[in-house]
Amino acid sequence: MHSESPGIRNPAPDASSTAQAMDAEEHRRFMRRRLERIGKWCLPLAVLVFTVWFWDRLVVVNEIPHYILPGPSLVWETLAADFWLLLEALKVTLQITLLALAVAVIGGVGLAVLFTQSRLFEMSLFPYAVVLQVTPIISIAPLIFIYVDNKIVGLLICAWIVAFFPILSNTTLGLNSTDHNLRDLFRIYGASRWQRLKHLQIPTALPYFLGGLRIAGGLALIGAVVAEYVAGTGGIGSGLAFTILEAGYRLQIPRMFAALLLIAATGVLIFVSLSLFSHLLLRKWHESALKKE
């Protein structure tokens, strides 16, 4: 081939073959994506259907009495029959969980901000936050109920202790994870401490905080349920955990299952709504919320 400048050659493009090869690969990738999309929903559903069917057969074939293992249909019927009773209990548990989560957010974020503003503060208090976290709530709860008269407040304190740590530690990590060049830039432009917190540290910490919040949501529910077990007293204002205990004493096993189902569903609901909340806040910019291209 002849060229005007030395060393330059213009190879003709060989379009047809490469285009077809690409298409076949694209097609395979497309099929795989579609399969994955269907599988994501269908496979768990299939597992659920199979489990329920197996459970039902297990009970029917072995003639297991309902006070040992009720079949899925009986659990469902109990759930419907005791719906209002269970709903009242769910309301109590949910109320404690959400309240504890709210206090955990305020306390966790507040403390995290204090920690990043004052190193002395962090050095003094952080070890105790860890101690509070690693001590099992079930061993602290009885003490709390001795000193706190109001049962609801006691439950709230227990749920809060469990829920606040992930928010505190994640938010602290986030507030300290600012880009060092951006920090320099803020200094060059003479930003005040408050401006740096508001415009740099808090936005940086947001994804970390939301990660902590998702964990804390589940933990608040666990804290509320565990504390209820410990509190143990019945009467008005008793939540789902107490319903399980009480039903257990009376050998109302189907009701235990029904209440358990509700607790699990509540946990899932909390997780899903917090994930959605997190997605809505981050979808514009954060890697975790972006669709893969």
């Binding site: 880009d179 060049n181 951006l182 320099d184 830039l185 803020f186 060059i188 432009y189 003479g190 930003a191 401006q195 415009h199 740099l200 936005p203 947001l206 514009k284 910019w285 954060h286």
Partner: peptide, 27 residues
Amino acid sequence: IGVVFQEPTLMPWASVEKNVWLPFRLA
């Protein structure tokens, strides 16, 4: 003083306009 670092050093949570706004905002 204006500074340009080796990395673009933009705030990922802010639009282009709001990134350029930063020095004014801090003032």
